[in-house]
Simulated scan of single mutants.
Amino acid sequence: MIQIVEKRDGRVVGYNEEKIKAAIRKAMLTTEMGEDEALVQKITDRVGMSGKDRMTVEEIQDRVEIELMKSARKDVAKRYIAYRDQRSIARRAKTRDMFLEIIEAKNNDITRENANMNTDSPAGMMMKFASETTKPFVDDYLLSPDVKAAVKNNYLHIHDKDYYPTKSLTCVQHPLDRILKKGFVAGHGESRPAKRIETASIIGCIS
């Protein structure tokens, strides 16, 4: 019986049969015969009970395909398989488009984001490939719903988001309240505490 599921990104989560049911229903609704709740439950039970204790997403989806093909609803099996293929293509296309944008980018927002990275060089381009493919992972799996909503609505901007999984604070290593009260002291320079609101605002932006 399936207990644990390994996601494509490496995460491990508890088995949730509702996701299997939702995928089968989605395939059924695109066919002429439509939904068959009894068959949905039957296939879900067979997949869950016959599976190993720990399985990958792909292994579970393979089992769903087999059970659908064994049933009388070959039309649903075809739709389910086609949907899996489409999702696979979409995942690859997302990465492809991101890479092409970096390859073709010349002095735009992507190349200017990090002043320490020259994306015109092969090494810089490779770093940018890694950087841009890491950001969607941060959005999907590391940010809380509140933070994602704040970013989406432009209340918050996360600089160097690609460094988030490394647990490195990069540009946010100095607490703003301490800088405003005691000034800034680091290996690259120092400054006294701000006396004017305009100066404090500039320091806040830089931080």
Rank of each mutant, 00 (worst) to 15 (best):
N107M: 13
D62W: 11
K161Y: 04
K74E: 06
E59L: 10
E58S: 13
F137Q: 13
F184T: 06
A115C: 07
K128Q: 12
K70S: 15
D120C: 13
L39N: 00
D36L: 10
K42V: 07
G48E: 00
K94H: 11
I179R: 04
H188D: 13
E104N: 14
I203N: 10
R63H: 11
D85V: 15
E59W: 07
S168K: 13
A93K: 07
Y80T: 04
S144C: 03
Q41K: 10
K74Y: 07
G204N: 03
A200V: 08
M28V: 06
K26F: 05
T166M: 10
E132S: 02
Q86A: 15
G48F: 00
M55Q: 13
K19M: 03
V64Y: 05
R178F: 08
E32N: 13
K42S: 07
T95P: 01
E59I: 03
R25C: 09
N118R: 02
I197L: 09
R178L: 07
I60H: 05
C205R: 13
S88H: 11
P136T: 04
K161C: 12
L169N: 02
S131C: 05
A27L: 05
A149Y: 08
F129L: 02
K128A: 06
D109N: 04
R87K: 10
R25F: 06
F99K: 04
M127S: 09
N153S: 09
E101C: 05
N154I: 12
Q173H: 08
A90M: 11
N16M: 14
I81R: 08
D97T: 02
N108A: 08
N116P: 07
A149W: 15
T133P: 02
A200Q: 06
R8A: 15
P193K: 01
N16P: 03
G204Q: 00
R73A: 10
S144K: 12
R92D: 08
C205S: 09
T56D: 11
R54K: 07
E6R: 13
F137Y: 12
R25S: 01
T119S: 11
E190Q: 14
R196H: 12
K94F: 15
V12L: 04
Y155A: 08
S201T: 03
G48D: 00
G204A: 08
D109E: 10
A27H: 02
T95G: 07
M55Y: 03
M98F: 09
H174F: 03
G34I: 00
E18M: 06
K74Q: 08
G34P: 06
E132R: 14
L142E: 01
S191F: 15
